[in-house]
């Protein structure tokens, strides 16, 4: 059942993004930034948590879930270490994904060459 919920929640989040893409002049980069920021805001005011409990990876894998994790981290950091924790918490909670993207990006650029589209 949790796979079905993940599929549906994740799929629907992407459909919202697709509707915005197709009906406006916004680019995927705009969508990424606005979804992420939306995730931070929703996470900050506690509205995203129920979706995470319901949808599991369907709510955490989309970039909006990345925003949620940033907000959660910042709040936890603030609870534990005050202002310093508010600064450090967001990146701490998402450090794995960010570091992975950087190191794998570097490695891939050494191993592979971009291919022309056809």
């Amino acid at each position: 059942m949790e796979f079905v919920r993940a599929f549906i929640v994740g799929g629907l989040i992407c459909v919202v993004g697709q509707i915005i893409l197709d009906h406006t002049k916004l680019t995927p980069a705009h969508i990424l930034v606005s979804f992420l920021t939306a995730g931070v805001v929703l996470g900050g005011i506690g509205l995203y948590e129920p979706l995470v409990r319901f949808g599991g990876a369907g709510a955490t894998v989309p970039i909006i879930g990345f925003g949620y994790a940033l907000a959660q981290g910042a709040i936890e950091g603030a609870k534990a270490n005050g202002v310093i924790g508010a600064f450090a918490g967001g990146i701490t909670s998402t450090a794995g994904g960010i570091a992975a993207a950087i190191i794998f990006g570097y490695i891939m650029s050494l191993v592979f060459k971009p291919k022309t589209k056809n």
């Binding site: 893409l21 680019t27 995927p28 971009p114 291919k115 022309t116 589209k117």
Partner: peptide, 8 residues
């Protein structure tokens, strides 16, 4: 965009 970037 870069060639390998997945956009429509």
């Amino acid at each position: 965009f870069p060639l390998e970037y997945g956009s429509q």
